Simulated assay, not measured.
Amino acid sequence: MVRGKKMAFIGDSVARNHVDSLLCILSQEEIPKDIYKDSEDRYRKWYFPKYDFTLKMIWSRFLIVGEERMVNGSGSSIFDMQLDKIDYDWAKEFPHLDYAIISDGHWFFRLMYFHIAGKLVGCLYCQDPNVKNYNSDYPFRMAFRAAFKHINTCTKCRKTVTLVRTFAPAHFDNGGWNNGGYCNKTSPMNVGEVNDGVFEWQLRNIQMEEFERARNEGKKKGQRFEVIDVSRAMFMRPDGHPGEHWGNKWMKGYNDCTHWCMPGPIDLWSELLLAVLKRSYDATRMMSS
């Protein structure tokens, strides 16, 4: 299904987490050539010669343009978000891809100012007078809507199958990542323990709403959208994070309850990816015959 193809994961560090899992699985068949790595290890490219298959990681925190304000040469954790402008780093690569797995979400919980057509339209977590304050679901929705709109209006992108991976929740208990939160559970939840009312589930539903909108529009233009819905399964795996054992030398004392251990529950995402690719591949073959 991927012989002679190009596949890219577009998103944040959780998308990279998925790529690393997939690489471990595929390397049992063939060890790829590591053909590109940028200075920050965010943009990566691997090549599998036996199958002429290229796998990429394209870093994009927001899918749209989001620029951090700098203060005395250092980051301020304040972002100016251009809700109507696509992140060029992934947009320029997209027409050359056969498969694109898009995900994002964990960066949308910072102080932000929202701009449309160059005008300030609101903010997140700001206390500025006369500026409308939104919840983080607003920029999240607008980012996916803008990304999907770009794909559907891109005449050079018709060969690309867009796969949306839904939001994978973190599991911090008794605090956040930077104020003592931890994840010490040692077994999965059962179905009855999953709370569909939590905010992370709302983010998943926003993605699904925007996905359905984009897919319906894409059908008119020959654009193909698929979904890899991992949210409910990952809600049930609070035991699957590195926690205090992530070995980060720059941020000692913090727990990682956002990313996923390998091998572990994140490997399921690649099983679901395979199933979706097979369904799309079979449908394409039926249409061509």
Rank of each mutant, 00 (worst) to 15 (best):
R145L: 05
F211K: 03
N216D: 15
P169C: 12
E210T: 12
K220Y: 11
T166M: 07
C183Q: 01
R224T: 12
R213D: 09
G218N: 11
H171W: 00
F140T: 00
R204D: 06
C157E: 07
H150R: 04
N130W: 15
V131W: 12
A170E: 08
K185R: 13
I206H: 03
M208K: 14
G218L: 00
M208D: 03
G181E: 04
A214S: 11
E217P: 00
T166I: 05
N179V: 06
A214K: 11
Q207L: 07
P188W: 10
M208L: 15
E212M: 15
L203K: 02
P169L: 07
W201V: 04
Y125C: 11
T160I: 06
T162I: 15
V194C: 03
R141A: 06
E210G: 07
E210C: 09
M189N: 10
H171N: 11
N216S: 14
F167R: 02
D173I: 07
T153L: 04
M142N: 12
N135Q: 14
K221A: 09
E212L: 12
A214Y: 11
I206R: 03
K132N: 08
S187L: 01
N178T: 12
R224K: 13
C154E: 08
I151V: 13
E212I: 11
N216F: 11
K159V: 08
N130T: 14
Y138D: 01
V194W: 03
F148Q: 02
D173Q: 10
A214F: 14
T186I: 10
Q207D: 01
F140Y: 15
S187R: 05
L163F: 07
K185F: 05
N174F: 10
F144T: 02
R141G: 00
W201D: 07
G176W: 01
A147R: 01
F211P: 05
P139M: 10
K219E: 14
N179H: 08
D173L: 09
K132M: 14
K159Y: 06
R213T: 14
F140G: 05
G218Q: 06
T155C: 01
L163M: 10
F211W: 12
V164E: 10
F211R: 00
K149M: 02
F144K: 03
S187Q: 13
K221G: 07
T155G: 00
S187M: 04
C183L: 00
T166C: 08
P139D: 13
E210Q: 07
E210L: 07
K159T: 08
Q207M: 14
W201P: 00
Q127A: 02
F148D: 01
P169V: 06
Q207S: 05
I206L: 09
Y125P: 09
T153Y: 02
K185M: 11
R145H: 03
E209R: 07
Y138C: 04
F199V: 02
Y125E: 13
R204E: 05
S187A: 06
N133P: 00
I151L: 09
P169F: 05
T166N: 08
Y182P: 01
R213K: 13
N152H: 11
Q202M: 07
Y134V: 15
F167T: 01
G218S: 04
N205Q: 13
V194G: 01
A168Q: 14
V164C: 10
N135C: 13
R165W: 07
T160F: 02
